[in-house]
Simulated assay, not measured.
Amino acid sequence: MAVVTWPARKAAAEAGDAQGVVIDLDLTDLGLGARKVSAVVVLYKDHSLATLRFAQSRSVPYLSISSGVFEIAPEVASVMNAPGAAAVVLGYEWLVGATTVPALDLARRFARVHEIRIGVLVDEEDGGGPTVAADFDYLNHFMPAALTRKSGTWQWREDNDAKAVFSAIDGTEIDATGFSSIDVVGLATSTGAHSVEFNLGNGISSSRRKGEAFSTEIIIEMNGLDLSGQALRTRHAVVHPGGAAPLTGMGIALLLERLIGLDGKPPVAPGLYFPWQILDASRYLAHLAHEGGQIMELPLL
């Protein structure tokens, strides 16, 4: 039988009132027995969806952050077959809400959003561990084309059409490739934008280029009509000096707090949700600032 690794035991001890437990996906109770569970969070891909079935059987919220947009059908079908069982969150937006929550807050300046372009810069030193790498290899293998909304139609960009360039915070041009983030679907359907694309680049972050530690950068460009009907273009960056992991962890923590009602409000009702549908934007942005992150207004190019 597998053993709980030292990092899991160490994390549980540091968290307090926690346990490191081996999960057995072949068992209906995941090997948890009678342990009380308030919610299930899947940080890496569970191809069996045993964790989702377990959450539904216990009527507790379920949050998955590692699926690809091309493979949501099994999760959607599970909710459709048991719509009243649990709140299920498709949390595989980039960094679990770090793109959509700020973007939708910025979109309030617009009466009509025509286009949204997302450019994400992942620093070469911010790659995560081997399991993160395995998840990305899996996604890149099965999802070589990038789901994009262009001029009102859904398209898959591939080969040369998937190549893109965006400017980092310091103005450096970043070679990027289209990525099928579910952010594209969420932003397009929530804003009505006719064109939405998501591009992912890897290199040196703006902070490291000036001699500081690496950071994560999410560039959000929008154009449309402002509240008075005049043309409006904006360009902002979501930045966190700790890289991708702190933003991901913050999104998960805030979602769990909201899902099970730890914020003093009633728990989220059963259903199928994007993170931004249940996260309070003002609360999210306040936590972002508290943890050293920020939303920067950038000059138009």
Rank of each mutant, 00 (worst) to 15 (best):
A2Q: 03
V3F: 14
T5Y: 01
W6E: 04
R9G: 11
K10C: 00
A11D: 05
A13W: 05
A13I: 05
E14N: 14
V22P: 08
L25N: 09
L27S: 09
T28K: 06
G31F: 03
G31R: 11
K36H: 14
V37S: 10
S38L: 05
V40S: 08
V40I: 04
V41T: 00
V42N: 03
Y44E: 12
K45L: 13
D46L: 12
H47M: 03
A50N: 10
L52I: 13
R53A: 00
Q56I: 12
R58H: 09
S59I: 03
S59G: 00
V60Q: 11
L63S: 09
L63V: 11
S66W: 01
G68V: 03
V69H: 01
E71R: 00
E71Y: 04
E71K: 02
E75H: 01
S78H: 07
S78M: 03
N81I: 00
P83H: 09
G84A: 07
A87H: 08
A87V: 13
V88W: 04
L90H: 00
G91M: 01
L95A: 11
G97A: 00
T99E: 01
T100K: 06
T100M: 03
V101W: 05
V101I: 13
P102K: 11
D105Q: 15
A107S: 09
R109F: 03
F110Q: 07
A111D: 01
H114L: 08
E115R: 15
G128P: 06
G128D: 08
N140T: 07
H141K: 14
H141A: 15
H141D: 05
M143I: 10
T148S: 13
R149F: 05
T153S: 04
T153W: 02
T153G: 03
Q155N: 10
E158A: 11
D159H: 02
D159A: 07
N160Y: 12
D161K: 15
K163W: 10
D170R: 02
D170F: 13
G178F: 08
G178V: 13
S181D: 02
D183L: 15
V184C: 14
A193P: 00
H194V: 14
V196W: 11
S205G: 07
S205C: 07
R209A: 04
F214C: 02
F214I: 06
S215V: 07
I218G: 01
I219R: 02
M222C: 04
L225I: 02
L225T: 10
L232M: 11
R233K: 07
R233D: 02
R235G: 01
H240D: 02
P241A: 00
G243F: 11
A244N: 14
A245P: 00
P246Q: 08
L247V: 13
L247W: 12
G249I: 13
G251I: 09
G251K: 03
I252W: 01
E257R: 15
E257T: 09
R258W: 01
G261A: 06
D263L: 05
G271V: 06
L272K: 03
F274Y: 14
P275V: 11
W276A: 11
D280P: 06
D280S: 14
A281K: 03
A281R: 10
S282I: 05
Y284S: 00
Y284M: 12
H287I: 00
H287R: 13
L288G: 05
H290V: 10
G292F: 13
M296A: 12
P299G: 01
